[in-house]
Each structure stands twice: as structure tokens, then as C-alpha cells.
Simulated scan of single mutants.
Amino acid sequence: MADPTPVLDDLRAESDELDRLVAESGAEQWALPTPAPGWTVAHQIAHLAWTDRSSVLAVTDRDAFAREVEKALAAPGDFVDNGAAEGAAQPPGRLLANWRTGRDALQAALRAAPAGARFPWYGPPMAAASMATARLMETWAHGLDVADALGKKPAPTDRLRHIVRLGVRTRDFAFGVHGLPTPFEEFRLELRSPSGQLWTYGPEDADDRVTGTALDFCLLVTQRAHRADLGLRAEGTDADRWLDVAQAFAGPPGSGRPPKESAS
């Protein structure tokens, strides 16, 4: 079973980096629009705070979390946006404090979790390491939207390795959620890390393969950039189709981002 400590440490570092970015922002900057339609900087941070709070409930109070799931089922198309809007209505200082409190509570809950424990979620149950990986993925992805709104460009780090692994593990889910048959064979991935290492996954002799940078792959699977704007290369029909549908997050197919040319 995976030791959650490394990914929890990286989740804390990723969250702290985003925290520094928004903590330096004036109140008017929290109202800036981000690339997500209808979401401001405040909505992005509120969503992270809301999801952290739900994660703590999943780890510490299953009955309370089950009630949250019931609310989600009652409004499947609105509950994420509603949660973000409710948090975004708070004064920035209070919202930031709530996000910090929730992050600390989740760190404590996951570090104290029994080895091998699995926790309920809106999708399949997750182990501590998987839940921390999902939180890191969301923190990084929503952090990109915040940075875009603030005119910043954070440098990628090797913390992306967790998101890459999540993107690889969710390959079959991405095909299934789009109603496509799941490829039988593994793919080969060869991705260059921010520090220059080559990260590889899958058999060397695989017929289908994806090559490029880890950053571009993470932008793809979090749907923060359109495939046409990335340098990823696919060999094989199934690998090529994957790059059109990949998503590392739970839920229905994401709408993704339009190509830069059509967005301009």
C-alpha cells in the first residue's frame, strides 16, 4: 500500500505556493474573472476550500459526508457551482482563513488515517494517498486559473509526477465516461519532467504511445489547455483518441478549454 507522506508533503507545498499568490492580492483582485466561465479568483479558492471540507468529512465523519452526497445527487448539475458561489460571497480574508483551516484539517486527518483505510467519495472510494493526489491535482489546476487571472505564470515543478500518475490511472475511466470501449493493451508514456528527467509508464514495446512534456500532459488531463495548443504526440489509434478525451477528475466529461485561436 502506498505511503501517503510524500504526496501529502507535496500537496502542502502546492497549496502554500497558491496561498502566497492570493495572500498578496488586494480585495479587488479576488473579483477578477478566471478562464473558468463565471468563476472569479474567489470562486476558485472557495471551491478548493469546499472540497477540502468535504474530504475531511469523508475521512472523519462518514454519516455527515453521506448527507453531502445526498445534496449532490439532488442537484447534480449545480452543487459544485453553488458551493463555489457560497464561499466566494465571503470577504477575501475570511475565505482565505477558511481555506487554510480546511487544508490543515485534511492534512491532519489523512496523516492520522489507519494504513490501508479507504474513504467514501463522490466517485469510487479512495485511499489516503489517492485522496491527497486528487487534492494536489485540483489545487494545481485551479491554481493555474488563479495565476492566469492575476497575470502570473508559476514555474512547473516535479510535483507534477503525482498528476501524471493520476492521469495514467484514469485512462480507462476517461474512455468509459465518453462511452468509448476501453483499450485492452497498456500505452507507453515518455514524458520529460520539469527538472529534465524522463518519466516513463507502460511497456517499452507498446504499439500505442504518448510522448511530450509532463507539463503538457498535466494540462491535458486537467483540461486546462486544448490538445491543439500542446506538444504531445500520439502514436496509435487508441492513444490518439485518448488525447481527445483524457480527464483526471471524477464526474461527467469536462467541456475543456477551446483552442487559443478560436478563443481569441
Score class of each variant (00 low, 15 high):
K152V: 10
R161E: 02
G176T: 13
T101N: 08
P76Q: 06
S264H: 10
V210F: 00
E204R: 14
F175R: 09
A132G: 08
W121C: 01
L48F: 04
D240C: 04
S25M: 10
N82T: 11
Q44L: 09
E24T: 10
P154Y: 05
Q107K: 01
V164C: 12
L106Q: 08
R94L: 11
V168M: 06
D10Q: 14
L8W: 08
D78G: 10
S15Q: 11
R233A: 13
K152R: 15
F65I: 02
V56D: 11
K153E: 14
P91C: 04
P181Y: 09
L57A: 15
G231N: 05
D52E: 15
G251N: 13
Q107F: 00
P120A: 08
F173L: 13
W140Q: 03
Y122L: 15
L232T: 02
G26R: 13
G212R: 04
R12Y: 02
V146H: 02
G26S: 14
T213R: 05
T51P: 00
V22P: 02
G102Q: 11
A89H: 02
P124M: 08
D240P: 02
P125W: 12
A109W: 01
G93K: 08
V146Y: 04
A206F: 00
T200L: 02
T157L: 05
P35C: 07
L230C: 04
W121H: 13
V164E: 05
E185S: 12
R159G: 14
A115S: 11
P124S: 09
A85Y: 08
A109M: 04
R12V: 08
P203T: 10
Q223K: 14
G83K: 05
S195R: 14
D244C: 04
A127H: 11
P114T: 07
A214F: 06
A149Y: 06
W121R: 11
A134P: 01
R12Q: 11
L191N: 05
T222K: 12
G202F: 03
E68Y: 01
A13E: 13
R111Y: 01
G116W: 09
T182E: 13
L136E: 02
G151H: 03
A88Q: 07
R20Q: 14
A174L: 03
A105K: 12
V168F: 00
E138Y: 13
V41T: 08
R67W: 00
L18Q: 13
D216P: 03
A239C: 06
R171F: 00
D240L: 10
T213Q: 02
L21E: 07
D208F: 04
D10T: 09
V221D: 01
W50Q: 08
Y201K: 05
K153V: 12
P125T: 10
W242M: 13
L48S: 06
P125H: 13
G77W: 01
A2W: 05
G102F: 06
R53K: 14
R100E: 14
S15T: 14
A248W: 03
A74L: 00
G167A: 08
L191F: 08
A23I: 00
A46T: 11
E190C: 00
P154N: 11
T51L: 10
G116E: 11
D244A: 06
T139A: 05
L220S: 05
H47S: 09
H162N: 05
L191G: 03
G176C: 00
R111P: 02
Y122V: 15
A85R: 15
E68P: 00
F217K: 05
W121Y: 12
F187R: 07
G83E: 06
